[in-house]
Simulated assay, not measured.
Amino acid sequence: MEQHRHLSVSQRNAVEDVLTSRDRMMALEGVAGGGKTTSLTAVREGAERAGYQVEGLAPTSRAAQKLAEAGIETQTLQRHLARGEQQGDGQKRLYVVDESSMASTKQIHTFVERLKENDRVLFVGDVRQHEAVEAGRPYAQLQEAGMRTARLDEIIRQKDPALKEAVKQLARGEVREVIGNLNSQCRVHEIGDLQERISEIAREYVRSPERTLVVSPDNASRHEINEAIHRTMQSERKVSTDEQRVHVLYARQGVTGADRQHARNYEKGDVLRCSKGSKPLGIEPGEYARVSHVGRESNTLTVKRHGGKELSYDPRRLQGVTVYRDSERKFAEGDRVQLTAPYHEQRLASRELATIERIESDGNLKLRMDSGARSSSRRNSIRISSTVML
Rank of each mutant, 00 (worst) to 15 (best):
E99K: 01
G33N: 11
Q87V: 09
D126Q: 02
D126I: 02
Q11C: 06
V188N: 05
E45S: 12
D362K: 07
V9P: 00
R305Y: 09
G286C: 03
G307H: 03
H293F: 14
L19P: 05
P285S: 05
L182I: 10
E287T: 04
E333H: 00
K159H: 14
N13P: 00
P217T: 00
E16N: 10
I359F: 11
S100L: 07
R5V: 09
A251R: 13
P315H: 13
K309V: 14
S375R: 03
V178H: 04
A354I: 08
K116M: 12
K279V: 14
E210L: 07
P315Q: 07
L163G: 04
Y324Q: 14
K116R: 15
R237E: 15
R79A: 11
A341W: 10
V175N: 01
A135G: 11
S361N: 10
E210K: 10
K92A: 06
M26I: 12
A341C: 00
L28D: 04
S104K: 04
Y205I: 06
R93P: 00
R325Y: 09
Y343H: 12
D160V: 09
G88Q: 04
D126W: 05
Y250D: 06
K116C: 01
I359M: 13
L318E: 02
V175A: 09
V291P: 11
K238E: 08
D314T: 05
G192K: 12
G180R: 15
A50H: 02
R207Q: 15
M369F: 04
G173T: 11
R211H: 13
E177Q: 15
P209V: 05
G56Q: 07
S298V: 15
V214I: 12
T20Y: 03
R12G: 13
T355S: 06
T38D: 06
M25T: 06
V54D: 08
K268P: 06
S184F: 02
E196T: 12
R83A: 13
K309H: 13
P161G: 11
C274I: 11
V124W: 07
G146P: 10
E29N: 05
T355H: 08
G269I: 04
A27Y: 02
D242C: 00
T60L: 08
V96Y: 13
A341V: 03
Y343I: 14
M147G: 10
